[in-house]
Amino acid sequence: MTMNALPPPENRTKVVEIKDLVTHYGDRMILKGISLDILENEIMVIMGGSGSGKSTLLNHLLGLLKPSSGTVRILGQDINAISEVEKTRLRTRMGVAFQGGALFSSMTVGDNIMLPLKEHTELDESTMSIMARLKMEVVKLSGFENLKPSELSGGMIKRAALARAIVMDPRLLFCDEPSAGLDPVVSAAIDELIISLRDAMGMSIVVVTHELESAFRIADRICVLDRGDILMVDTVEAVRNSSNERIQNLLNRRLEEATLDPDDYMRRLTIGI
């Protein structure tokens, strides 16, 4: 998880540059002028509770939302200023694993993973099939290519979504809540997988999550988002030791939930029965 082998941050390419990003939903301001750089080959975790604006921020990074003001540059290109053709080309260089997988339910897992290849390359069927299987091997999902997404477990869906996201060998990978809704063991395995993708394939990875444990495990740097503002962007250690009250609140609230007293919990459930 350390960045020992990498050059110092100031020498690394910025794969994402967000400048003074402001968004409104109706009259409500969701993102209040945030700026953030994400560097080559790092795992940046954007962390925040619900309502922090992290999903909105992700949608901006993916070019699915237009900001009220400010710019978003992905791999050097302003995603809101380029033509549709350029945008399509840019999008072949980024991969996205959605929270619920967003696999196409009418297609098999294998066809889902092959889809970007089918649409953007002229490779023949067997080559595409091999490439898809290669990626399924990477996410440890080999042998499941003929199943429909509805036949997969939660963890397998996340793996399949990751395989589809990396099938074009993107430089930039986005993961939306990769460990949400999974049990701790499966969640840890997905985290390992994300780290290995960065190490083995040299990707820059942006993870949006509200799970502290997962964030601390995988992040090179964490961006803490709260009510539309960035509280801090720093290493795991620095965030953990931050004296900022709002950050401490955010961290402690989770920890309180985690250290639930089982006896007390049972008593509350069975009260009056």
Binding site: L62, G63, L64, R89, V96, F98, Q99, F104, E119
Partner: peptide, 18 residues
Amino acid sequence: GTMRINQEIDALHVMGID
């Protein structure tokens, strides 16, 4: 409608598939 709710439409957009 189902595809939209499951973010499959978003997925198409970000895969560069109109």
